[in-house]
Simulated assay, not measured.
Amino acid sequence: MADRPAPWPAAAPPPPGYLPPQRDQQLPSSYPGLPPRPVYREPHPVSALAVVSGLAATTVWFALFGSLGRDLASYAWWTIGAAVSAWLVSLLLAVLGDRGMAVGVAVASGAGLSLAMGFVAARWIGTQDWPLW
């Protein structure tokens, strides 16, 4: 059986200044005037409650506008009008108001418009007649 090789020598400690200072250690006196590290925070944080409120309000908005339509064409046009006005409100909320509410309004209006356009596309595919004219 072969002899065991000699173990590796222990690693030498790194040279001074190689490792960053630990939290409990103070910086050397050669750095006296450094300001503390900045902490970046969102000035207007988005909360989940605001997003859900925007979703709920826009769902009611689309239900009210959609109920005004008598057939698919009028439903689609009312939904397009509701989506355009909701996007304008969302833009206004994003600039001046609550960003969470703006996100909820934008998401719900996109979903509502997609649903209406899905109905329009299904009618168009099924009958080969564009229902919005």
Rank of each mutant, 00 (worst) to 15 (best):
A94T: 14
H44K: 15
A102R: 11
P43D: 09
A50S: 14
R123E: 13
Y18A: 14
W77V: 06
L113P: 07
A2F: 15
F119P: 00
S29Y: 06
F119W: 07
A57E: 09
V52T: 06
A2W: 12
R41P: 05
R123P: 00
P13M: 02
A50C: 03
V89G: 06
A122S: 05
R37P: 14
M101L: 15
P45K: 06
S74W: 03
V107F: 00
G17R: 04
W87S: 13
T59I: 08
A86E: 02
L19V: 11
W8F: 15
L113Y: 05
A12F: 02
G66L: 07
V46L: 02
P38G: 13
Q128T: 01
W87L: 07
R99C: 12
L113A: 05
D71F: 13
R70A: 15
I125L: 11
P9M: 10
L72I: 03
R123C: 01
A76W: 01
G110K: 01
P13D: 08
W77H: 02
H44D: 13
F119D: 12
T79M: 12
S47R: 05
V51K: 09
D98M: 02
T59R: 09
A111D: 00
Y40P: 06
W133H: 14
G112C: 10
W87V: 03
Y75E: 10
L49D: 05
V39D: 13
